Amino acid sequence: MPDPIPLRGASLHDGVASRLRTMIFEGQLAPGGWVDEKQLAATWQVSRTPLREALKVLASEGLVELVPHRGCRVVEISDADADDLFPVMALLEGRCALEAVRNADDTALARLRHLHGELERHAAAGDIEAYFRLNHEFHSLVQALADNRWLDRVTGDLRRFMRLMRGRQLQLPGRLQASINEHRVLMDAFEQRDAHRAERAMHDHLLAQLVAFKKLRQPARSRRAPSATPATSRG
């Protein structure tokens, strides 16, 4: 359910846009689903104007699609999108890791170590949702530690689309444990101050996610595939 607290202030549509992003990233507005403008406007006690302005902002970010005469729906990442997106993110996040290792001081390393410890805890508990949330925080910290505004700009932009998939690959049996193992390799590279090893580890971690994503969607494809009808002979 949307947050019932009314929105006020001069930058009203910015606040609305922020809440809509949160709802999308948290899965409250599902990929491919339509945005109920009337309900949201009533719940947040705003007119439709700031809501529509906010949706235009999200459309410019690629998170929603404005459909003439029908309304607005949340963008859904297709299989082809995932195939194209993961390798690009692997390159970008690998570079983030390399630069983060070079920049990280003892305090930053301690922050990463703490987050990794929490990831270990969630992985051990099998808590996929908590692991996904904290994993996003971990990757965002690595991105921030890279301290490269151009890298940050493009990585942050594409990370929004990664979040639309909400870590679905973690649903694959065994993937959660594989993911934390990959994080251990990455953390060891940070601990050893090995920037190039960290770059490879992060790159491989992202590509492993794509492999898991493909494996997860194979059964769904099989279910959708039409059954073959045997040919009949006519005499």
Rank of each mutant, 00 (worst) to 15 (best):
R70A: 12
R70G: 05
R70W: 09
G71Q: 11
G71N: 07
G71V: 04
G71I: 03
G71H: 00
C72G: 01
C72R: 00
C72Y: 01
R73H: 10
R73N: 06
V74G: 07
V74E: 03
V74I: 12
V75M: 12
E76F: 05
E76N: 07
E76L: 12
I77F: 00
I77Q: 04
I77A: 12
I77H: 02
S78L: 06
S78W: 01
S78A: 09
D79P: 10
D79Q: 15
A80P: 06
D81Q: 11
D81L: 14
D81W: 01
D81A: 15
A82Q: 03
A82F: 01
A82H: 01
A82G: 06
A82W: 01
D84H: 13
D84G: 14
L85P: 04
L85G: 08
F86I: 14
F86G: 01
P87E: 04
V88W: 11
V88C: 08
V88N: 04
V88T: 15
V88R: 14
M89D: 00
M89W: 09
M89E: 06
M89S: 08
M89Y: 05
A90Y: 05
A90E: 01
A90M: 06
A90V: 09
L92N: 00
L92A: 02
L92Q: 01
L92K: 07
E93T: 13
E93N: 12
G94Q: 03
G94S: 02
G94V: 05
G94N: 03
R95F: 11
R95T: 10
C96R: 08
C96F: 10
C96H: 07
C96N: 15
C96V: 13
C96M: 13
A97L: 09
A97M: 02
L98W: 14
L98G: 06
E99G: 02
A100T: 10
A100M: 09
A100S: 12
A100E: 00
V101L: 05
V101D: 00
V101E: 07
V101C: 01
R102E: 07
R102N: 10
R102D: 05
N103G: 04
N103R: 12
N103I: 08
N103M: 10
A104E: 02
D105M: 05
D106P: 03
D106K: 15
T107H: 14
T107Y: 12
A108R: 07
A108P: 02
L109Y: 07
L109F: 02
L109V: 14
L109H: 07
L109R: 15
L109E: 11
A110S: 11
A110I: 14
A110K: 10
R111M: 14
R111A: 08
L112W: 04
R113D: 06
H114Q: 08
H114F: 14
H114M: 07
H114W: 11
H114S: 11
